[in-house]
Write a protein that binds this DNA or RNA. Structure first.
Lengths: 167, 167
DNA sequence: TCGAGATCGTTCGCTTACGAACGATCTCAG
DNA sequence: CTGAGATCGTTCGTAAGCGAACGATCTCGA
């Protein structure tokens, strides 16, 4: 992550000229459109920060947030089909395919054909996958706490509640 | 590579019967770790939904949220260097490179060498880019409104405030 | 029974996102 | 003035994410 370092370097403050016609008409009553106030932009930035904290706190540089969610769901549900897992975790089926392929390659997840439906592939954790997810889950609260650190307990609850409703 | 290390596994908790085995006894005091309550997971899902709404509301299937943010920033600031734009919009410099390359390819952004610093590339909107961003900005509020629809006005303000603080 | 439509998992192409390494260039302290 | 270190933009590799198309399979109603 690039740190903000450029400050203090005002060399390029010159604003060449022209083209920058009506800077802001500065309408006292009207609110200008600001990207950094838009919900989508804020969600993107907050998600970036949360992902970075996950990576630094989870203690395993090879596990991504999405992989972790998939592993936890498999831990809870035991055995589910691939697309079903995708729905549970909020992954497109193309995305799911890639995530599961990588988890299988690392021997964290095993697959077998569904005996009752030839279209389906049933997934479950391997012993190794189960051990890993149990270990990683102990770090889960640390990730959450660190991400929500700027807020007090009340605000943390509010944010989680509001986010649940728009997610 | 030895495939299936886990075949038929006995030690593994075998969920032989399809029925939902009763989850670990619910300790009234203890809270189980739930992915769908974690802030990172909620941010990921909310961001997915916000992006989908952006795409359906913005009216131009070729413009992504990140591209839009970049265009708006260029519209506001006139002319900035590439890395500087990345910092303003929250993009890694590798990401910035890709985004700008695509915007240049579509003739929405133009670039020139910084006369005072040979390392830098100065970016600005083309006339076409300027017209586009002005048109798209009128759809901006629609995106926000639709995304925040599940919340009332008070809750919307709260969410934006809280998100700003953790982003 | 049978066939239209749904679902399953795969593949392709594209975009965002990040870390790491790189050569070129700039800044600043000594 | 000079060299160490910072910054610039590029490139490579990897991951998540999505739409679209595809063949195989399953479901269900006529």
């Amino acid at each position: 992550m690039d740190t903000q370092a450029d400050r203090g370097n005002t060399a390029h403050r010159s604003i060449r000229n022209e083209r920058r016609m009506t800077p802001p008409p500065v309408d006292p009553g009207e609110q200008r459109y600001r990207v950094e106030r838009q919900i989508g932009y804020l969600l993107r930035r907050a998600h970036q920060r949360a992902s970075a904290i996950f990576q630094e706190q989870i203690g395993d540089p090879n596990i991504t947030p999405t992989q972790f969610s998939s592993l936890v769901k498999l831990h809870e549900d035991g055995e589910v089909s691939q697309n079903q897992l995708g729905r549970l975790v909020g992954m497109d089926k193309a995305t799911t395919q890639g995530v599961i392929r990588r988890l299988k390659a690392r021997n964290l997840v095993s697959a077998r054909a569904d005996p009752g439906d030839a279209r389906r592939t049933l997934l479950r954790l391997t012993g190794e996958g189960d051990r890993l997810v149990q270990r990683l889950m102990t770090a889960g609260p640390r990730v959450t706490n660190e991400t929500l650190k700027p807020l007090n307990a009340d605000e943390q609850r509010q944010l989680v509640t509001l986010l649940s409703r728009i997610a």
